[in-house]
Simulated assay, not measured.
Amino acid sequence: MGAADLFLTSVGRRPDGLWAAPGRVTVIGEHTDHSDGFVLPIALAQRVVVAAGRRGDGQLVARSAQQPHEPYARALEQLAPGAAAGWSGYVAGVAWALREAGHDIGGVDIVVDSDVPVGAGLSSSAALECATALALNDLFGLGLGRMELAHLGRQAENEFVGVPCGILDQSASLLATERHALLLDTRSLAYEQIPFDPAAAGLALLLIDTRSRHALVDGRYAARQDACRRAAQVLGVPALRDATLDGVLRLGDPLLRRRARHVVTENARVTEAAGLLRRGAVHRIGPLLTASHASLRDDFEVTVPELDVAVEVALASGAHGARMVGGGFGGCVLVLVDAQAAPSVAAAVAAAFARRGFRRPLPLHAVPSGGAARIR
């Protein structure tokens, strides 16, 4: 049952509209946005759909097609950090952030449906925030721009849910365009749509969901952010975006040195990858993806065995490049591969997982898609 049908059966009327926002995958530029760095994500075809309708009693009532027995209801004036958990926290957090910013929103029924895998590093949470933000913006005539909505989604995740994410995920979900990657400067928020059409080059972006699930609220993500801030302080720069590799290599603390080295080298890889894509050299970004994974594994230390095995086997099976995506500690691997070889690479990874007793991975195709939009 889709969002519109569930809205009709649970609320008793048709919604005022439907809005959809995509998950995202970062082609390259992982763990740089919290250091004012550069990122290069795409939006995915997989989306969160929100059916929404105004109600007159000042209540936020939210339901999920994936968890139909866990409806959420709370007066808007009672929303505060900690007032919702799980999926409902992202919906309630956006409503709270809008009210905190002084925007007049009224009671609303929201029904959510999604095919973005949860916990796979594909930003299902940001997609839910962005679909909700777009719906509330339209329903209550707020007139907010997309970057404003991205900031509100980030505020919801940071302050209401308690995940210290950067602006990457919400920006990709709201700003991405079809057959392009979004080059975003997370300091200035300047962005450029970079042509990126792997299929036209005979390539495929294979996403392998390792089904090893992460939880970024457990402190490991925040600890790495803190290390990056401390490294920048020692180096005397506003953020690691301003650091040089020579300076980083002189850091005395080996932990700070590793964390900072990842950010500085990853920023350089984003810049190089964007330059290659501008020239249409899609094949040549493969080694950058692989170098990114090695950096995330060795310097940022956010991989797990399932991610490392998937990358190793994909490369051994002929992939041009592969890397983990998302916050880490589980989730997906992105593989750049010749289109005809994608099934055999996915099969090789599945066989390797079976030999090691890992859960069976799920292959998905990552197609550079358009951003959030009203669909009805």
Rank of each mutant, 00 (worst) to 15 (best):
I42Y: 00
I42D: 11
A43L: 09
A43D: 11
A43I: 10
L44Y: 01
L44H: 02
A45I: 06
Q46P: 05
R47M: 12
V48G: 09
V48R: 04
V48P: 08
V49I: 13
V49L: 02
V50L: 04
V50P: 12
V50Y: 00
V50R: 02
A51L: 11
A52S: 01
A52W: 00
G53P: 14
G53V: 01
G53E: 12
G53L: 03
R54M: 12
R54I: 10
R54K: 15
G56L: 03
G56D: 15
D57C: 09
L60S: 06
L60V: 10
V61R: 15
A62P: 04
R63I: 01
S64E: 06
A65H: 02
A65D: 02
A65C: 14
A65Y: 01
Q66E: 14
Q66M: 10
Q67M: 09
Q67H: 13
Q67L: 14
H69F: 06
H69Q: 14
H69R: 13
E70S: 10
P71T: 06
P71K: 09
A73R: 15
A73F: 01
A73W: 00
A75I: 03
L76R: 08
L76K: 09
E77D: 14
Q78S: 14
P81W: 07
A83W: 01
A83H: 01
A83K: 10
A84C: 13
A84Q: 03
A85M: 00
S88Y: 01
G89M: 01
Y90E: 08
Y90V: 09
V91K: 00
V91W: 03
A92V: 04
G93H: 07
G93Y: 08
G93S: 08
V94D: 04
V94G: 10
A95L: 13
A95I: 03
A95P: 13
A95G: 11
A95K: 10
W96E: 05
W96I: 05
